[in-house]
Design a protein around this nucleic acid. Sequence first.
DNA 1: CATGAATGAGTTTTCATTCAT
DNA 2: TATGAATGAAAACTCATTCAT
Lengths: 192, 192, 192, 192
Amino acid sequence: MARPDKRSDIVGAALQIIAEQGFHGAPMAMIADKAGVAAGTIYCYFESKDILIKELYREIEGKMLEALREDYQTERPIRERFLHLGTRLLKYFVAHPLDFKYMEQFHNSPYGAALRRGRFAKESNVSHLPYPELFELGVAQQVIKDLPEVVLFALAFGPMITLTRDHILGFIELDDPLIEKTIAACWDGIKR
Amino acid sequence: MARPDKRSDIVGAALQIIAEQGFHGAPMAMIADKAGVAAGTIYCYFESKDILIKELYREIEGKMLEALREDYQTERPIRERFLHLGTRLLKYFVAHPLDFKYMEQFHNSPYGAALRRGRFAKESNVSHLPYPELFELGVAQQVIKDLPEVVLFALAFGPMITLTRDHILGFIELDDPLIEKTIAACWDGIKR
Amino acid sequence: MARPDKRSDIVGAALQIIAEQGFHGAPMAMIADKAGVAAGTIYCYFESKDILIKELYREIEGKMLEALREDYQTERPIRERFLHLGTRLLKYFVAHPLDFKYMEQFHNSPYGAALRRGRFAKESNVSHLPYPELFELGVAQQVIKDLPEVVLFALAFGPMITLTRDHILGFIELDDPLIEKTIAACWDGIKR
Amino acid sequence: MARPDKRSDIVGAALQIIAEQGFHGAPMAMIADKAGVAAGTIYCYFESKDILIKELYREIEGKMLEALREDYQTERPIRERFLHLGTRLLKYFVAHPLDFKYMEQFHNSPYGAALRRGRFAKESNVSHLPYPELFELGVAQQVIKDLPEVVLFALAFGPMITLTRDHILGFIELDDPLIEKTIAACWDGIKR
DNA sequence: CATGAATGAGTTTTCATTCAT
DNA sequence: TATGAATGAAAACTCATTCAT
C-alpha cells in the first residue's frame, strides 16, 4: 500500500511544504500527512525537525553541485567556464523550483546564517562551488575585475538569484536563449 | 519617563527584534516589553501582528525610497542617474542594516510573495522605484541592453542585495570607494 | 467567578494530583483543569513544570519547618527537645497527609536526589532542620550513641517516615498517645 | 553471540535502567537495546511494561527473602533472630544496590501502593517476611515493646531503609561493624 | 487609551504497543 | 519465537489575542 521508501516520501513532502510555506508553515503533522505516514514515523528517519531540515538542505545542495560540475571542463578559458557554470545553475533552478525555494528559505534563516559563517570561517562562503578558484584565476589573468572575491561573487550570483525568484513567481519566463543572454550580461559585470 | 509616542516605540522595537530574530522569534510580548508598553497596548495601534508587520514594511520602504530620490536629477544622463541610485541604495542599506534585514525577512515570507504578486499584477514588481522608467529610457536610447525589465532589474539589483547581506554578516567591509566600484560594475552588467 | 488567587488554586491542584498520582500522573492539563484555569495560565505563575514542582516543595518544607520550630525551646534537655521535634513532625504529617506524600514523591525522584546532594555537599542532608545540632550536642554530652550523624538521623527519622506512610495508607490510626509512644521508642534507638 | 536466555537479559536490562532512571526514564526501546533484543521481543516474554515491572519486583523480592531466610534459626532467642535478620537485610541491600533502588522506585509509585494495599487486606503489609511472627512472639514473651505490629515494623525497618538510601547516595560507607551497631540500635528501639 | 492576566489552539516530540515478515 | 518499522495518542510548552479594569 505505502510506497516502498517512506523516507523519500517524507523528504518530498517536507521539500514541497517548506518551499511553499516556510519552516514555520510546515508543522511535522502536515509533513507526515502529505507523506502519507504517521507523525511519529518521521522520527524513525530524522531525529528532529532541525535535523530533517539540515539533511534536506544537504541533499538538495549535493544534487545541485553535481549538476553544476557535469561537463565542466577546467581546461577551457575562464569566460567559457563561467558561462557554463552560470547557465547550468540557472537551468537547474528553473528545472527544480522547489529546490531553489527551499534553499532560499534555508539561507534566510538561522540555519543559513550558521552555515555561511561556518564556511566563511574556513575559506569560502559557498564552499564546494568551483567559483572561488575561477575568480582568483581570472583576476590573476587580468580577465576579471580586481575586486574582492565577495564582490565578484555578488556581481555574478546576485542576478541569478533575483531572476530565478522572479521566474518562479511568474514575472518572467526564462527560456534557454534568455538564460544565455543573462549569464552573458553577468559576465559583463565581472569582466575587466 | 515613557517617550511621548508609544507607536514609534512599538515600531522601533518590532524592527529591531524582527530584523534580528525573524518574525517567529518576535512574540508580541517581547516587542511590547522592548517598547516599554503592555502587550495589549500594541493592539491599540495595530489590529494584529500581521498588520503591524505590513505597516512596518511600508514605513521602511518609504524612508528608503525617500533617500533614493534625494538629489535625484532626471535631467542627467542615464548612466549617471543609475550610478546615483545604486550608490544611494547601497549606502542606505549600509547605514540602516536593520531596515535591510527586515526587508529581507519580509520578502522571504508569505508577506513578500503576496506583495510582489500584487505589484506585478498592476504594473511593476518594485513599484515606486525610479528604476523601471530609467530602464525603459535606457533601452530606448540604446544605452542599456535590450532585455526584459525584470532581467535588467535582476542584473542591477541582485548584486546589491547579495553584497549587502555579506556586508552585514561581516564578510566584507563596504566603504565608499568599494561601493562606487561595485555600482560601476553593475552598470557594466546592464549597459550595452 | 474565579477564586481570587489563581496561584493558590494551581498550587493546591498540583499538590493534590502529584501527591496522589506522582509527577508523571499529573499532566499540566490535568492540574489546570482541577485548578479551574486554562492550561496556559499555569505558565503565568510558573516558568515550567519543573519550577512548579520545586517551588511547591519549598512551600511545603517551609510550612513544615515552621510547625517544627514552634514552641521549640533550646534550653530544655536533649531528650525533651528530641521528643518535641519528633512529636511535632509526626503530628504535622498526620494533619497534612498530602504534604507528606508530596515530599515523598519529591525525595524519590531526580529532584530529591539533587536536593540531598546539594545539601550534603554543604553541611547537612536535611538542612534547616534543628536535628544535626541536637545530635552533635547529644553525642558530646554522652546522652546519644556515638554514631555518625547520618546513622542517628536514620534511626530517628526512618521510623517516622515509614510509620507515616502506613498511617496514610490506613494500616494504622496514629492518635496522640501512639505518636508519643513511637517517638519515645525512637529515642530509645538513639539514646546511649 | 547472544546469551542463551533472552528473558534474563531483558530482566537484567530493565533492572539496571529502571533502578537508575526510574520507570519513566526506561522506555521499552532502551531496555530492549541494552538487553540486545528487538523492541517487539520483550512482548514475547511480558504482556506489557506493567507486567514486566511487577514480575521483576517479584523476582527481586524473592531473592531478597531467600537471602534473609538463609541460616535463620527459629530456635534462637528473639534478639539474636532479629539481629540476624536485620544484618542480613542491610548487607543484602549493600551488596545489591540496584535491587534496593528498584524496590524503592516500585514502592514509591502506584504499583507499590497497590501491592501494599493488597497485602494488608490479607494479613500483613510486607508478607513473606519472618518479621510479623517474630514481633508477635517477642511481645508475648515481653521482650519487645507492646506496640502495634505496624509500629514495631517501622521502628525496625525504617532506619534500615533510610540508611541504605544514604549509603547508596554516598553519604556514608556502611561496613560490617557499622551495620552491626546500627542493627543493635534498631533493637534498642523495639526492645522493652 | 492603557493594562496585563488569562486564554486555548497549535507545535514538537516521546514511547508503549502492534503486526507483517 | 524474533524482528523493528510504524503507529498515534499524549505531554509540555508557546504565543497571538481578548477583555475586565
